[in-house]
C-alpha cells in the first residue's frame, strides 16, 4: 500500500509545472523515505531530479518500494481539477497498474477521485557524482527567471561568468549583445533578495537558453535559486521546496569542438 497526502494541492501543482516542460513522462520511485524522480529530457541534454521527503507529507505510507511511471500530461489534466487549497492524496496498491489522486475540499463537502493508468517506462538512470563546485551562486529565483527570459531574446546561448566580483550573464546574436551583471549583496536585509557567491575559482560556461527557461518554471516553488558551476561540467540549478525537498536540474554545457 502506498499513500501520500499533502494538505494543499498547490505544492504538487507547482512541482508538476516545474517538470512537465522538460518531461513527457517520468517514473516516481516511492520508498519509505519518500518520492524520487530522475529523468532526462528527450534530447539527453538536461536532467530533472526531484526529491519529496516522506516527513514533508501530512501522511505518508509506503509498505513496499514502488515505481510509478506516469504520463505527465495526463497527471496535469488531473491536477487541474484540484483547487489549490484542496487536500491531495495519492494512493496505489502494491504492484498496481493505476494510481488514484483524491482531492478533498477544505470543508470536506466535496471529494473527488481520479484514477490514472501507470506506464512501464524504460528510462536510463544516470549516476550523479558528489562534486565540489568552483562557484555557487544563490540569487532570487524571480531574478534568474527574468534574466533567462530577457537574454534569450538576443541569442540561443547564455554565457554565465562568475568571479569574486559578481556574476555576469551574457547573450549575443543578430540583434547585438546583452549583458547583465549582478554584484554580490553586501548587506543582507532580506535573505530572499540576496545574491551570494561562494567562489573557489572563476568559471565561464555557456548554456542553451531554451533549457534554462524550462528550469525557471520551478520559480513559484521558492524565493531563491542556487546555481552550482565548475569548468566543463554540467550546471546544477536547484530550487528548494519548503519543508519537503527540492528539484534539481542538470544541464550539459555547450563546448568548443
Amino acid at each position: 500500500m502506498f499513500e501520500a497526502r499533502l494538505s494543499s494541492a498547490t505544492t504538487l501543482k507547482k512541482v508538476l509545472d516545474a517538470i512537465k516542460d522538460l518531461l513527457n513522462e517520468a517514473t516516481f520511485d516511492c520508498n519509505d523515505s519518500g518520492i524520487q524522480l530522475q529523468a532526462m529530457d528527450n534530447s539527453h541534454v538536461s536532467l530533472v531530479s526531484l526529491t519529496l521527503r516522506a516527513d514533508g507529507f501530512d501522511k505518508y505510507r509506503c509498505d513496499r518500494n514502488l515505481s510509478m511511471g506516469m504520463n505527465l500530461g495526463s497527471m496535469a489534466k488531473i491536477m487541474k481539477c484540484a483547487n489549490n487549497d484542496d487536500t491531495v492524496t495519492m494512493k496505489a496498491q502494491d504492484n498496481a497498474d493505476t494510481v488514484v489522486f483524491m482531492f478533498e475540499s477544505q470543508n470536506q463537502e466535496k471529494v473527488s477521485d481520479y484514477e490514472m493508468k501507470l506506464m512501464n517506462l524504460d528510462q536510463e538512470h544516470l549516476g550523479i557524482p558528489e562534486t565540489d563546485y568552483a562557484c555557487i551562486v544563490r540569487m532570487p529565483a524571480m531574478e534568474f527567471a527574468r534574466i533567462c527570459r530577457d537574454l534569450s531574446q538576443f541569442g540561443e546561448s547564455l554565457v554565465i561568468c562568475c568571479t569574486k566580483e559578481g556574476v555576469k550573464f551574457s547573450a549575443s546574436g543578430d540583434v547585438g549583445s546583452a549583458n547583465i551583471k549582478l554584484a554580490q549583496t553586501t548587506s543582507v536585509d532580506k535573505e530572499e533578495e540576496a545574491v551570494i557567491i561562494e567562489m573557489q575559482e572563476p568559471v565561464t560556461l555557456t548554456f542553451a537558453c531554451r533549457y534554462l527557461n524550462s528550469f525557471t518554471k520551478a520559480t513559484p516553488l521558492t524565493n531563491q535559486v542556487q546555481l552550482s558551476m565548475s569548468m566543463d561540467v554540467p550546471l546544477v540549478v536547484e530550487y528548494r521546496i519548503q519543508d519537503i525537498g527540492h528539484v534539481r536540474y542538470y544541464l550539459a554545457p555547450k563546448i568548443e569542438d
Partner: peptide
C-alpha cells in the same frame, strides 16, 4: 565550433 554536449558525457549510465 560550439556544440551542445550530452549529459552521458559526464555522468555514468545505469
Amino acid at each position: 565550433e560550439v556544440t551542445q554536449a550530452e549529459l552521458r558525457k559526464y555522468f555514468p549510465v545505469f
